[in-house]
Amino acid sequence: MSLLLSGIVFGLITASVLSIASVGLTMQFGVTNFVNFAYGELLTSGAYFALVFNQSLNMNIWVALVLAALIVAVESYLVNRVVIQPFIKRKARLLILLVVTIGLQLFLENAIQAIWGAGFQQYKTSPGSLLHLGPVLITVQQLVIIVVAACIMVATHMLLKFTKLGKAMRAMSDDPELARVSGIAVKRVTDITWLISGLLAGAAGVILAINTNSFTPALGANFLFVIFAAVISGGIGNPYGAIAGAVVIGVVMEVSASYIDSAYKTVVAFAILILVLLVRPQGIFRSRGRV
């Protein structure tokens, strides 16, 4: 019983990281309508930028997180402007856009490896004292992760629900043609979406790196299909679905890790991804018929 309970608590921690990352990916997909295979490398970039602030400049890890996330937001913006937009302008087919993002994935991962090396890295930070949550022990740091993720989710909700920008994003996601016709500044909304998507990716990358303790340039690439599992279970393009998907995937992964070899928990995420694609490719949490 306590095994299950601790699985659920650790699942919530994983879900926290996963939900931030998933919302960023799914939001960008919703607005631009293609999957960014270089998204994992935005997470990795975040983790390494934070490493510079934290190790070389001796900053607190949470301050480093904020700075790193801002830089990744700019990186994501530039990725769109410099690499993606030339193809969009020439009305490149979806297949070509996907090839471009996978090329970018390869480039960025190896660039990070060229700069920081392939070895393991670690932040200078302490997990803080242990807290008792009933029978489960968690660290202060893990608690902070959950709180930070919750705050980011609330902020995302406010953005989507109450701002003009959020409404424009949802409109573009629902019907791009209609959005264009009804006078939404498509280009500006797209730019801002890439910024926000990068911001979330950067933050998720740092938190992922904190949570896994040590990391390599493959950090994001290895996590990418876990993000896909969450995003697709939630119905791709749907931020709320992505959060729900992240919670399910996170909890199932960690609960299963309590019972089987924990090295295989990503295999569990993969199994869920395959199952969803076979049974309900439009996502578990999406009621509407459009795929």
């Binding site: 193809f87 090839v99 471009v100 480039f107 190896n110 490896q113 392939a118």
Partner: peptide
């Protein structure tokens, strides 16, 4: 060297389709 090789392949893909 491996890193440069990976970067070059990624770049090559993008430049080729561009």
């Amino acid at each position: 060297i491996d890193s440069f090789r990976g970067m070059a392949i990624g770049l090559l893909l993008i430049l080729a389709v561009r």
